[in-house]
Simulated assay, not measured.
Amino acid sequence: MTGNRGAGRVLQNWDTATLAIRTALGLMFMVAGLKLIIPGPFGLGDDREQLVAGFTDPVTGFMAPWSVQFLTDHGVSASTGLFVQGVLEVLLALGLLAGVLTPRLAMVAAMMLVMFTVLSPTGGQIRLSRDLALAGAALALAFWGAGRWSVDRWLLRRGAVPYGRLARLGGLTAVARGGNRDRGLLVIRLGMVFTLGASALFAGGVFANPMNSSVPQAVLLIAAVVLAAGVGARYMMGGIAGWLVVIAVGKLISLGPLIGAENVKREIALAVVAATYTMVGPDRWVLPRPRRLRCRDVSELLAAYIDGGLPPMRRRAVEFHLADCPDCWTYLGTYRQTIELGQDLRDVRVPAQVYERLSALVGGRAGADAINPDRRR
């Protein structure tokens, strides 16, 4: 059982990581969509006109005047546009939570988050820097796929038409081959760097957010610089995750579950993303940079890695390679399945007749080798 746990540890961690990120993004989009459909429980007014007024305010709103004019020119009111957006976000959330065609839906989520910054009437890319950081997390999810606990994995296991065609159309077969895991971690780290730096440099008025309202701007800026350099990246991300959890819990307690969730939905999602990086990171572009291993090196170290006999730095080097090498990643998964199959068969009793024949065969060969040593060469 020890070998089985060792063989599955990296795969299990990545499955947990993908589940955590798509759940965090799914719940965030669920809250964002529901508030546009039923704004009252989220503290956004008892009627839709009040909601529209808040979203279309030319300074503090989230819809630039040109976007409202675009909808009007096409015969769609701002209220209807927000309602449709809410429905689409809820549907996107359900797809992410279930893990349906995750690579494609994650790309849609990333594009929607970027679109929100474009539509903002005031400094969207800076004001909604957290959305851009979450867009990076969605892009990483598009690289990685949904993981084990998903409809996607079920589709891949079916492997038959029309499921095979649907899997290829949804990008599932590409992510199943592995790769891009290290690049996804890098995108997550750089996204966090951007939101820390933006929150530090722009903190007044509409640029205020729960991040730059809770710690000094200088601290945020230093954290951004250190994280950008990749120094102690895992520890930095772990600290950021803990800090964001404290912010989120405080808001949920003071504002209530629904209004609080609407207020800090981005911080909750970012906390999960940072914790995920801590669990499966860092990426390879950190300081000090880990020693790069070749596939041959990993194959020689794999047995010791599975048994837990490698030193920490060498273990991390193996994990770096596994995280971004499709062939070795597949080999590790096959190795784990072989161990599991062997464990399932260990209690199967060999028939006495088969056992006697095998014993006679092995004994006969041993005797022949003793008589003729050249046979052993």
Score class of each variant (00 low, 15 high):
1 M>T: 05
2 T>Q: 11
6 G>C: 14
7 A>T: 01
8 G>T: 09
9 R>E: 10
10 V>C: 02
10 V>A: 05
10 V>N: 01
11 L>I: 01
11 L>Y: 00
18 T>S: 10
25 L>Y: 11
35 K>I: 02
35 K>P: 02
45 G>P: 05
47 D>F: 11
51 L>F: 11
53 A>V: 02
56 T>D: 09
57 D>N: 15
63 M>Q: 05
64 A>D: 15
65 P>D: 10
82 L>H: 02
82 L>R: 01
82 L>K: 01
87 V>P: 08
90 V>Y: 07
91 L>C: 14
99 G>F: 05
109 A>T: 13
111 M>D: 08
112 M>C: 06
114 V>P: 02
114 V>T: 06
116 F>V: 02
120 S>Y: 04
122 T>Y: 11
124 G>V: 08
133 A>T: 06
144 W>E: 00
149 W>E: 10
151 V>A: 11
151 V>E: 03
155 L>P: 00
157 R>K: 09
159 G>V: 05
161 V>H: 12
165 R>D: 12
167 A>Y: 02
180 N>F: 07
181 R>H: 11
189 R>N: 00
189 R>C: 00
200 A>S: 13
206 V>R: 12
208 A>F: 03
211 M>K: 00
213 S>G: 11
214 S>I: 05
215 V>Q: 14
219 V>D: 09
228 A>Y: 04
229 A>R: 13
232 G>Y: 11
234 R>D: 08
235 Y>E: 14
237 M>T: 00
240 I>R: 00
243 W>T: 07
246 V>L: 13
256 G>S: 08
257 P>V: 03
259 I>Y: 04
259 I>T: 07
261 A>D: 04
267 E>N: 10
270 L>I: 07
276 T>W: 04
282 P>F: 03
299 S>N: 13
301 L>G: 01
302 L>I: 14
302 L>A: 11
314 R>F: 08
315 R>W: 09
321 H>F: 06
323 A>P: 03
339 I>F: 03
340 E>A: 15
357 R>A: 08
357 R>Y: 08
360 A>N: 13
362 V>F: 09
367 G>W: 07
368 A>M: 15
373 P>Q: 12
374 D>Y: 14
377 R>L: 12
